[in-house]
Design a protein around this nucleic acid. Structure first.
Length: 204
DNA sequence: AGCCAGGACTGAG
DNA sequence: CTCAGTCATGGC
């Protein structure tokens, strides 16, 4: 099965997914929309998005959605805010490292950060693996990096396609698709929509 | 009552 | 280098 054909089928079945940029996100107060996406990429690691929304709402309430604020706040306050997203000890540390990097190396400018940082530099950050790095680059930086997650692998498996590494899955999709950020954005969101519909049908 | 969610890190072998 | 164990809350 060709990836372009998979996309066409998914789009016909599930339609536009409205992932990032999120229009529903609270925009009042001091609030860096790019930073919010970066934070969301970390908070959603192995975690249901509904739980991430609670955590982000708490961060908004505390005016913590800027690199400067997150870098400066006491880490136990950070932990309390993101508790609903799970793994709050690890994730608080991850947010600290991310925000400090943006403040120290990019003057606190998250757009400059995600526009200029290399994928390898992201991967070098503690707490940022392949999927999180690609999600950040794609959804916050609008760079054409295809995101591979567990649903992507499950979908491939239904076509008998299987690889050993993250990068091999990524290549399977990117080598025959145009390097188009909008396309990759929607494709990944559609694959997640597919995955959730599978679960509702009681499959595994 | 489990199982698992838009993963990544660590330590053992 | 591979791989099980660990991290944690909320929804179904």
């Amino acid at each position: 099965m060709h990836p372009a054909r998979i996309y066409t089928q998914l789009h016909a079945t599930y339609g536009p997914q409205h992932w990032w940029p999120v229009q529903g996100a609270v925009q009042r107060g001091v609030h860096d929309a790019t930073f919010e996406i970066l934070v969301g990429c970390i908070l959603t690691q192995n975690t249901a998005w509904t739980n991430v929304e609670k955590a982000i709402a708490a961060l908004v309430r505390r005016r913590l959605l800027t690199p400067q604020a997150t870098a400066a706040v006491r880490i136990d306050v950070l932990r309390a805010c993101i508790r609903p997203a799970g793994y709050f000890n690890q994730k608080a540390k991850k947010l600290k490292i991310l925000s400090r990097t943006i403040v120290d190396d990019y003057g606190g400018n998250s757009k400059k950060f995600i526009g200029a940082v290399s994928r390898d530099a992201l991967l070098a950050l503690w707490g940022v693996g392949p999927e999180t790095a690609d999600s950040m680059l794609l959804y916050a930086g609008k760079r054409p990096e295809f995101v591979v997650d567990t649903y992507t692998k499950r979908l491939c498996a239904t076509y008998g396609v299987e690889f050993a590494t993250y990068d091999a899955y990524k290549r399977y999709f990117t080598e025959c698709l145009p390097a188009d950020a909008a396309l990759y954005n929607e494709f990944h969101a559609l694959i997640v929509a597919w995955g959730k519909s599978q679960k509702r049908r009681g499959k595994k």
